[in-house]
Design a binder for these strands. Structure first.
Lengths: 205, 205
DNA sequence: TGTACATCAGTGAACGCGCGTTCACTGATGTAC
DNA sequence: TGTACATCAGTGAACGCGCGTTCACTGATGTAC
């Protein structure tokens, strides 16, 4: 990061990075544009060269997050093939891994309260991410007899909700949030029981 | 609410109520102490007669929320008896119903970022709430053969996470959050599949 | 019933502060010739 | 290679604003006698 001199060189990304670490430590509403500027070593006014304001800055963090997230999900999905089951399980694991590894991005995406649809670019990249999980769910649903097959969108929503709940409740380092089990184990076992309920894993395994 | 005159009469609760509706509309970090005071028809300084500050005000909202929440869960649990299964399912439904009916409380409890353990009274009432779900899970686990019985705390955590995920992802009126299914149905079907996976509901129902 | 007095909830002014945003500017960089 | 000039990223001062918090105060209420 060549920061010396009058011109920063790569201020836009430096601001995003500063914002990400502020979000991580103080929450998406817990910091100011001025703080982000200072953290990037720059005057608050300089931010306006690259972003329309605070909201826009957070949106860019979320956008980059969705991009990374979708890539990870895609990679997990591909790697699990050709087994639909292992693909599906891998995407669940990837979800949690992402939340762990990129907490700032995760919070910008899911906890900042920004409206996805207000920003077309954001909507596009977000739907790329969710599309992959839906694809994995749809592949998997082929293995359920048609007459008792629930809509793929439904169990992709179940898994998404379970993943999100585990992240929010058991992953945060909040003093006071006691995690009864490691989140990874919790998610793994939860998904296992769920898939057994769908008849996709033998009952006695 | 007798508000006329110099003395308010019930300012403490009026402040809590004002805060709850501010949280509901602007998020737990999206309002100021001064706004809450103004909404209650009072000078910001008056707040300090009843609370130590903003944080303390939110904590009281959360405390009242946990109290209501625990009562609802308890009621649902009792009402489902003596069937352990129906008790368990009822607590899941109660969770979602609470989140829907008391969004301000819910956000103060789960999205405000306040540390439960920093406030002993808050920790006490919060554990009363989670204790009920764990009890329901423990009752239910008696119906699983001991050798394949997972810890009750584990599947209470699974259900808690699923409930929370459904609320966060599919209940919020955010423009852009399309809910593929009504949250109630999503939760109901998710829990159903999960319980089938545990062998507590016949596979072909 | 009336009066004196203690209590205490809420006031309003004051404080220092950091915010977001604007603006004319400055000075580094890159390019044309 | 050198020079003139256009570009534009970042500066720093300024603005009006609302914040949280403190303080001496005021005036309503309740109670003792």
């Amino acid at each position: 990061m060549p920061k010396r001199g009058y011109h920063h060189g790569n201020l836009k990304q430096a601001l995003v990075d500063a914002t990400l670490s502020l979000i991580e430590s103080k929450g998406p509403q817990g910091f100011t544009l001025s703080e982000a500027a200072k953290a990037a070593g720059v005057t608050p006014a300089a931010v306006y060269r690259h972003f329309q304001g605070r909201e826009d800055l957070i949106a860019e963090c979320a956008r980059q997050g969705y991009e990374i997230f979708a890539d990870l999900m895609e990679y997990a999905y591909e790697k699990g093939r050709p087994s639909a089951l292992s693909s599906f399980e891998a995407t669940g694991r990837a979800y949690l891994a992402f939340a762990r590894k990129y907490p700032g991005h995760y919070m910008a995406m899911f906890e900042s309260g920004l409206s996805i649809n207000a920003n077309p670019e954001l909507a596009r990249v977000a739907s790329r991410a969710s599309g992959i999980l839906e694809k994995a769910a749809s592949d998997l649903s082929q293995h359920i007899p048609p007459e008792k097959r629930p809509p793929a969108a439904m169990f992709s929503a179940h898994i998404w909700a379970l993943c999100h709940g585990v992240v929010e409740l058991y992953t945060r380092g909040d003093p006071g949030a006691r995690a009864p089990f490691p989140p990874e184990d919790l998610l793994e076992s939860g998904i296992g029981i769920y898939l057994r309920g769908l008849g996709l894993i033998p009952q006695d395994s």
